[in-house]
């Protein structure tokens, strides 16, 4: 008897992610949602540049690889071309909040009917641990070796709060995946973000506060604790926009 199955929306390809990386969990959540909504055959995903660059190998739906930061623009093109299909992007913090911020804000401002899964681990992982737009004050990275100094390196960007200043977005929620309860909540949010699109409600973004033990220089266990201790005070969990609740 099978007690634990791999979602159909994932291919058989083995993930390349580091031990303790939460990309694997988030991939799985997205795939479970795609399975539960029965939309695998109608879904087109857009992969980022960053650690999740190979996401196109892992999701079983049709996939498009984007240039760094451009996934929301590509998703816009795909959605305008095929409004009946389900289009999502999967992006990291450097991709979405630094080089691609213009595309992110503009796509949100248009209320483009797409779903964005935003993985925020406060660091550039694939290039070996440089400062991200979401790196915390004092956070030591390769390019902030003395800790992020706001005088010269500015402050971290809170994406959900920033996008919540716009009129158009339908749904903005920040979740995390550092324990079972939070994983369940994260899945609920991701499902809602896809459902909104299916129902034609418009732009939905779920920010997933994530762990990068390798580049944070911690054990996987310690990294999950660090999310609670350091990340969540800067990035409070919660719903920043849900037009369904505003009547």
């Amino acid at each position: 008897m099978v007690v634990f199955e791999k979602p159909k929306a994932l291919t058989d390809k083995v993930f390349h992610y580091c031990p303790g990386c939460t990309h694997g969990i988030i991939h799985r959540l997205v795939a479970e949602v795609i399975d539960e909504l029965g939309i695998e055959g109608q879904t087109i995903g857009v992969a980022p540049v960053g650690c999740a660059v190979l996401a196109y190998d892992y999701f079983a739906c049709d996939m498009i690889e984007a240039a760094h930061g451009r996934a929301p623009a590509i998703a816009t093109g795909v959605k305008r071309s095929m409004p009946d299909k389900v289009v999502f992007t999967y992006q990291g913090d450097g991709d979405l909040a630094s080089i691609g911020m213009c595309e992110t804000v503009s796509t949100a401002a248009r209320g483009e009917n797409v779903t964005i899964i935003f993985v925020n681990n406060a660091i550039y992982g694939m290039t070996g641990g440089q400062m991200a737009p979401t790196s915390l004050i004092g956070q030591v990275t390769q390019t902030s070796p003395y800790g992020r100094d706001p005088k010269t390196q500015g402050y971290p960007i809170r994406v959900c709060e920033l996008l919540a200043t716009l009129d158009a977005p339908q749904y903005l929620e920040r979740v995390t995946v550092n324990n079972v309860k939070n994983v369940r909540n994260a899945k609920k949010a991701i499902k809602k973000a896809f459902q909104n699109q299916i129902e034609g409600k418009g732009f939905s973004l779920v920010e997933v506060v994530s762990a990068c033990p390798t580049n944070w220089g911690m054990t996987p266990q310690k990294a999950l604790e660090w999310i609670d201790e350091k990340m969540l005070p800067q990035y409070p969990l919660g719903c920043y926009r849900d037009k369904d609740q505003e009547v």
């Binding site: 087109i44 498009i64 240039a67 623009a73 093109g77 795909v78 305008r80 071309s81 213009c102 595309e103």
Partner: peptide, 18 residues
């Protein structure tokens, strides 16, 4: 009307992908 030339060409990329 895209937010930038860069966005415009990537929107083209999106449609071309289909």
């Amino acid at each position: 009307q895209a937010e930038s030339e860069i966005a415009a060409i990537n929107m083209v990329y999106g449609v071309a992908s289909t």
